[in-house]
């Protein structure tokens, strides 16, 4: 092994509920993600792909198992430490966009910077740059209600990349969009992965979207079923 993985999961389990109603969503997931990779996580509903994503994003905690991020144990961190980890290293894109309502695109994108304590002027510049990258610079003053779904998702991507995270986690980012908009979003993510070296983790159930990824992880019944690796140059064809 030439390189340490950026993220390493070992024996991750997740149990929802207690007693007879308990449901084991993850039954011991082992997964390594290399720095700079573009990973698509696929699988039928209930296969545990979203649960894995939430654990990877530190939005949820595993019931047992080891989670190493840059060689550090994440499963032992407390709430605030996990928040700080998200603040510093992670960016999120959700299926439902999850933008703040009645808040302009610019202010939404600025939000992670506010929590980082970035000064006002720099905040504004970085947010405008991020909006520029997703092609929405001229929509900065519009609220989510005034934007289309594709535009909202691009604002969400701008919000995720404004902090130049190490990892961008996208949970079915194209689930609410038509094919044309979906391809735009995927091209945007591919570009970020290629040009900025951001590791992208994508959950999807559409093979068409997974085709953009370099590594495809298949989930079934709470376990990793198979991992496909594509040759370095392939996949992200225009």
């Amino acid at each position: 092994m030439a390189e340490e993985p950026l993220i390493s999961l070992r024996g991750i389990t997740k149990l929802f509920g207690t007693g007879p109603a308990a449901f084991q969503a993850l039954k011991g997931v082992d997964l390594d993600i290399m720095r700079g990779d573009f990973v698509a996580v696929m699988g039928p509903s209930g296969s545990g792909k979203s649960t894995t994503m939430n654990i990877l994003g530190c939005l949820d905690v595993p019931t047992s198992g080891t989670f190493l991020f840059k060689g550090h144990h994440v499963e032992t961190l407390d709430r605030d430490q996990r928040s700080l980890l998200r603040r510093r290293y992670l960016g999120f894109v959700f299926q439902g966009f999850n933008l703040l309502a009645r808040t302009t695109a610019l202010e939404n994108v600025e939000l992670p910077l506010i929590y980082r304590g970035t000064p006002k002027q720099e905040r504004h510049e970085l947010a405008m740059a991020a909006l520029g990258k997703v092609g929405l610079a001229e929509w900065a003053d519009h609220t989510p209600g005034e934007l289309s779904g594709g535009q909202q998702q691009r604002v969400a991507i701008a919000r995720a990349l404004v902090t130049t995270p190490d990892v961008l986690l996208a949970d079915e980012p194209t689930g609410n969009l038509d094919t044309e908009r979906s391809i735009e979003i995927m091209e945007l993510l591919t570009g970020l992965n290629r040009d900025s070296g951001i590791t992208v983790l994508l959950v999807t159930h559409e093979a068409e979207m997974a085709a953009f990824a370099r590594t495809v992880v298949h989930f079934r019944d709470g376990l990793v079923e198979s991992i496909e690796q594509k040759p370095l140059a392939g996949g992200a064809a225009k």
């Binding site: 994003g57 939005l59 709430r79 605030d80 928040s83 700080l84 998200r86 603040r87 510093r88 992670l90 999120f92 999850n98 933008l99 703040l100 309502a101 939000l111 992670p112 929590y115 980082r116 919000r159 902090t163």
Partner: peptide, 16 residues
Amino acid sequence: TREIGIRLAIGALANE
């Protein structure tokens, strides 16, 4: 509550 979730997800501390 969703707003709180968004803020937490992008790295806000619960206290903030």
